[in-house]
Design a protein around this nucleic acid. Structure first.
Lengths: 146, 146
DNA sequence: CCCTAGTGTTGGTCCCACCAACATCGGGTC
DNA sequence: GACCCGATGTTGGTGGGACCAACACTAGGG
């Protein structure tokens, strides 16, 4: 494979972007077997960790736009992984709940992602992995508040 | 801002993906002022570093699909940043050349990206930046060959 | 009571990554 | 020289992810 310009390969922004491409491809291929995609995992994970939630809350937690939550929850509900019921007492709000099947789907996707992490960080020692994760976490956390 | 599920925040794949979102947004906003986008920078950078090239070679170097190179080179040519001429002696191949205006555009985009790196790695010390860049580079290099 | 903030929903945009198919040309082999 | 293979340019399409604007509706505070 031809080498990219040095202008790119020395920039952290390029490294992150290109690695993200790799991550997306690995996750996409893994999720495809389960007929799922990234948004589904985020939402299932949030429901499992924080319990039933409104769509707006799911969007905020998962960094997904409200309008995209509508579609994703619709897809999940269509396959029985999630139940969307009107919030009693709160006219407009919905209450999204994780089902048993949804929990099983979440576990399947967890296994996929575990393999993705191993594949991704393959060349690094356990110590380097920890260092990398810590640094990435610090950088992301710094930009998260806003 | 609500916190995302721990299932996500502890995974390197999530950290990289979310940071990539941040990077893209920063770069997009910066490039917008110059009426450009990411593919343009990659191509201009390759032309500057390696000289005139065919579209296929640009695609390989910049990790851009052949068909997308067509569009990007067309846009760059339309604004005079690049010249697309048939390769003499090589019937089908094109020869893409960087112009003076193109070089100026490249320098503008360089400044934008320099600011992006600073913004991105703001919270890290010079030493941590180097460590992070080195680790990311190693991981990417490991997955690059193929 | 009104006004604001929050919610669900529709419908669209953009960038990036990728694929299939086709016509065309080059360079090799037989 | 005829033939096939691979590379090239191009068209057109797909999909995921991240957005934005607008609307209808509700809850709650001033």
């Amino acid at each position: 494979m031809d080498e990219p310009p040095e202008r790119l390969t020395t920039k952290p922004s390029w490294l992150i972007s290109q690695l993200a491409v790799y991550v997306r491809r690995l996750a996409f291929e893994g999720f495809a077997a389960a007929g799922a995609r990234g948004y589904h995992y985020r939402i299932l994970a949030a429901l499992h960790e924080f319990g039933p939630a409104s769509q707006a809350e799911l969007g905020r937690r998962c960094r997904v736009d409200r309008s995209d939550v509508v579609a994703a929850v619709g897809e999940l509900a269509g396959r029985g992984f999630v139940e969307r019921t009107p919030d009693p007492g709160h006219g407009r709000r919905n209450r999204v709940t994780l089902t048993e099947d949804g929990l099983r789907q979440l576990r399947r996707m967890d296994e996929v992602l575990d393999r993705v992490q191993d594949d991704l960080l393959g060349p690094l020692s356990a110590e380097d992995r920890q260092t990398l994760t810590r640094l990435l976490g610090r950088v992301l956390a710094h930009h998260e508040p806003h």
